[in-house]
Write a protein that binds this DNA or RNA. Sequence first.
RNA 1: GGGCGCGUAGCUCAGUGGGAGAGCGCUCGCUUCACACGCGAGAGGUCGCUGGUUCGAAACCAGCCGUGCCCACCA
Length: 871
Amino acid sequence: MSAADREKLESITRYDPAEVEARVFAEWMEGGYFHPPAEGTADENFSIAIPPPNVTGALHMGHALNGSMQDALVRMNRMRGRNSLWILGTDHAGIATQAVVEKTLKAEGKDRHELGREAFVERVWEWKAEYGSRIVEQYKRLGASCDYERERFTLDDGYVRAVYRVFKQLYDKGYIYRDHYMVNWDPGSHSAISDLEVENREVEDSLYSIDYPVEGSDRVLTVATVRPETMLADTAVAVNPNDERYADLVGRRCVLPLVGRRLPIIADEHVDVEFGTGALKITPGHDPNDFEIGRKHGLEEIGVIGPDGRMTEEAGEYAGLTVGEAQQKVIAALREQGLLRSEEPYVHSVPFSHRSGERIEPLISLQWFCRMDELAKPAIAVVERDEVRITPDQWKRVYLDWMREIRPWCVSRQLWWGHRIPVWYCDACEETIVAEEPPTGCGACGGELRQEEDVLDTWFSSALWPFATLGWPDQTPELRAFYPTSFLTTAREILFLWVARMIMTGIEFAGDVPFRDVYVHSVIQARDGRRMSKSLGTGIDPLEEIDVHGADALRFGLLAMSSTQDVRFSDAKVQQGRDLANKLWNASRLILLNCELEQDQSHPKPPQDQAPAAVGQGTPTPQPVLVEDRWLLSRLEQTIASVTAKLESYDFAHAVTEAYSFFWRDLCDWYLEIVKPRLYDGEPEVSATLLYALERLLALLHPVMPFVTEEIWSFHPARRGHLAVHPFPVADQALFDRSAEADVESGIELTQRLRAWRDLVDVPAASVLVAVIDGVSPPEFVSRLSRFEFDGVGAEPVASVGPVRVLPSEELDAAAVAVRIEKRREELRSEVQRAERKLGNEGFVAKAPVEVVEEERGKLERYRAELEELS
RNA sequence: GGGCGCGUAGCUCAGUGGGAGAGCGCUCGCUUCACACGCGAGAGGUCGCUGGUUCGAAACCAGCCGUGCCCACCA
């Protein structure tokens, strides 16, 4: 070790992530480790496509958790020598990005219509150039080992080609079509949105009952509605066909109040006899159910509410009013005419735009749709057959249930920022042309063409992410080497929005599923159990956590928190991660400053050009003789086996806590304390064991805590290259040693009993007690770590702790000892009672497995013997 | 309305048929030559409630109470 390194290790007693992280990350980038060659096959390689964050986004806890999981797996596989690609990129996020830029325009006192489409889009690109890489930089802070050289954007040129190719092919297959249909109109973004972008919220409204006079009769039909203003667009009244009260009215007409239109009275199964009076006003233009009923019965579709959220000319005297104003005016008019029968408070669920937060206005408009049923079929089959495995498996059923009920997808959006739909219209001959490249003129009449104004739903392009990022539709080397990807982690909220659609498009266009494994991770909630959300102000900023505690601490904490169920964010877990990083640093200082490799086994620093994956493990496998060394290595190898298995099965929380407990308890609390005298003596065998264990432990932890492990590794005498590309340890079963484990663990147990005994009889911590051993001597360390000397002579013992007979001494207070002994007797009596009761149960002895019964008998015997001794 | 979860120590959570666990917090004791972001020792739980299955239940089953999420076109 160089003098400078030694000086650093000696002087820095607290790990400082802020000093380390940027420097280490730069070294990885310089090494090019995250940019694998496009070689080999997808089966040999490992790849993940990151769920692309919005360009407008900032790293939030969901990204951080998701990124920690993905990075752990990518790093582990990279260390195994596989070509590992984690592809990174951002989503153009149509509505969100357009909204951001519109806001900056507004601040300048302009709006996008003044600028015009072209200039506006130009403006958004400028915004993207300036701010679009923010989230990518934030992923670097987390330590994410993405391939930053292959960064993609859903609107870059190649990606647009993929989107147009897919659109065209779906159109040619007849899946994509244009129709006047009921859509979710979002007045906030002035666009249609898909069903999946709608969230229902409970709202308190008023339920109005209104009398519709029946034509040529003195009867009335009383209908109930929460939206009286839509009555202006009513085109029928419906009753249930089995409703005898109204059987005679079906086929007749009633008169629409305020408007005077004659409305047919129709019969439809949809109407609930029990609800209200059993009569339902039908507004096909502004209610999704009524729309269905209207199409079934061939009713007229009238629109009285426009895309601007105001009443249209069709609304007559109400034209120009907002929906709310119109409602008040309609109610006032009805009340005046005595047709308002009642008004009562009513709580029901109402659709809101997930994007803008505004209340959805259902209305009929001309939109592009994609029918999904045929695409869904194979996507259902692959999940049924587990060719795409969804974990935890309850989500498999959720996926399948949804896919089996899938409905057409409204893919057009009335925005300017996005993939402009590749459709051209000829006004001269009414020809519609769908093409991947802009056509020069109308093929039929040579007339001028104008392109569709609408853009595609953002999710239409993200659905292609796993293969479009690899260069599809070209048959690129990347596509061959990394498709299908290996794995996807996701929040469940985008299971339908994104995951299902990737599976469908992957099968249809890339010829295979996009990934083999989907892991649906839990949601980290705010500390108080509410949702983390910007608007609620409940978000916790991962970057602040990184600033304060370090990226490794946050990563460890998030993985430790993660679980199959949702959990509240735990500062304690992040702190545990920070403490772990610090302890790793300090334990490593102790080891590195006191251990040396045998001369001929140490290696020079690696040449820069050395192929890292080709470098094997640096420290030679030790051949330990002493029981504590064998114990440590046995525990180490078992931990490697277990942690690896847990990472591979996405059980991150248990993986990290198990590694933690091996390191903290076994290595630091026990092994290091046990071997300190040998360590300070410079004994070669301890050096060999510790350097070996440290190397393997650092490698094991590196996927979870890459920075601190890499930093420590830079001081390790066996280092030949970066840990990021160091071989990942494979458990060496030859080092498993059950008997060493049993011996050391019983020594540990005895040490703890002796320490507890001392504490309870109030012996000063520093004083050494004298005792003799009755029977087999425990391992050497027991005496030292418990501050007992086992070579006493003469005197009558004053107490027994296991095989240890404590001899009298000045520091021992006889009364305290007596109290302690009585306490132990109590414990033993209760244990004996419990065991006797159990063994006295005939059913237990007869039916429980033999080994369980035997174990119980053994315990009883031991307790009785100890009790005997104490009497 | 349908579906899926959850209810275990003061807090946040593990634990899925054989004597209740972790981290944090709390108490007591330690300036022990890696670390006070540390070391040692403790206290603390009728495992939501009620029944059932079993020799044995925190775990399995049923019901109830509480709580969270997803899906759904009753105005």
